[in-house]
Design a protein around this nucleic acid. Structure first.
Length: 205
DNA sequence: CTCTCGATGCGCT
DNA sequence: GCGCATCGAGAGA
């Protein structure tokens, strides 16, 4: 069982001003805090994927800046939220060295606080199992009421959504592998830029 | 449990 | 028009 020790201090801008692959590994175990209607919802990241810019054919930033992917090119430590498959929102954290572009997709998390509210946000027929609330990127966004309105929001100032450093528990370790359903050439597909806690029950399918 | 398939909006070729 | 950093229902085993 995971113990939530405190509200925590948000991660800093400099934490995200580095290579996205390196940061993605360190982001596993961190907490996302979402303040909604005066309530704090807290989840723990158990799976995420790094996307870079021109060297990464799978990345939205690969073909340069557009209106949609603009947050990926702007200051690190902000959200990049986009809409896909006509119905789903994806939550990313903008992460890249100065002058570059990139983001980390949060694919799955473990609910820690506010589980009943997450259940309501997901819908009454989902979430009988806690893992069903947040074990996929679109599920996570729905459980935390994340939509395009939060794209480009600063995650480092303790506002309506922010990220807090976390730690792995005893016996846990992070493993890596190819990203899920990425487009692009073979080299992009093969890159082991997906990170997750080995054996964790909240990792996506 | 596993597998297949439709939903549904929009950015980009 | 195509295809997507997905999910859930439904069918079959």
């Amino acid at each position: 069982m995971t113990v939530v020790k405190s509200a925590g201090t948000p991660t800093t801008r400099t934490f995200y001003a580095r290579d996205a692959v390196a940061v993605a590994r360190e982001l596993v175990g961190a907490h996302i805090v979402r303040v909604i209607r005066g309530e704090r919802l807290v989840v723990r990241i158990v799976e995420c994927e790094a996307y870079r810019d021109t060297s990464d054919a799978a990345s939205h930033a690969y073909r340069g800046r557009t209106e949609r992917n603009a947050p990926m090119f702007d200051a690190p430590g902000h959200a990049y939220v986009y809409f896909i498959y006509g119905m789903h929102w994806m939550f990313n954290i903008v992460t890249h060295p100065p002058g570059e572009a990139g983001a980390i997709l949060v694919r799955a998390a473990e609910p820690l606080l506010g589980i009943e509210t997450m259940r309501e946000l997901r819908g009454p027929r989902f979430g009988k199992e806690a893992a069903e609330l947040t074990n996929g990127p679109a599920k996570l966004a729905q459980a935390l009421a994340i939509t395009g309105r939060l794209s480009a929001v600063d995650l480092c100032i303790g506002g309506e959504i922010y990220v807090v450093p976390g730690a792995l528990e005893a016996g846990e370790h992070v493993v890596s592998g190819p990203r899920v359903r990425v487009p692009g050439d073979e080299s992009a597909k093969a890159r082991p830029w997906r990170f997750w806690i080995h054996g964790n029950a909240f990792v996506s399918r």
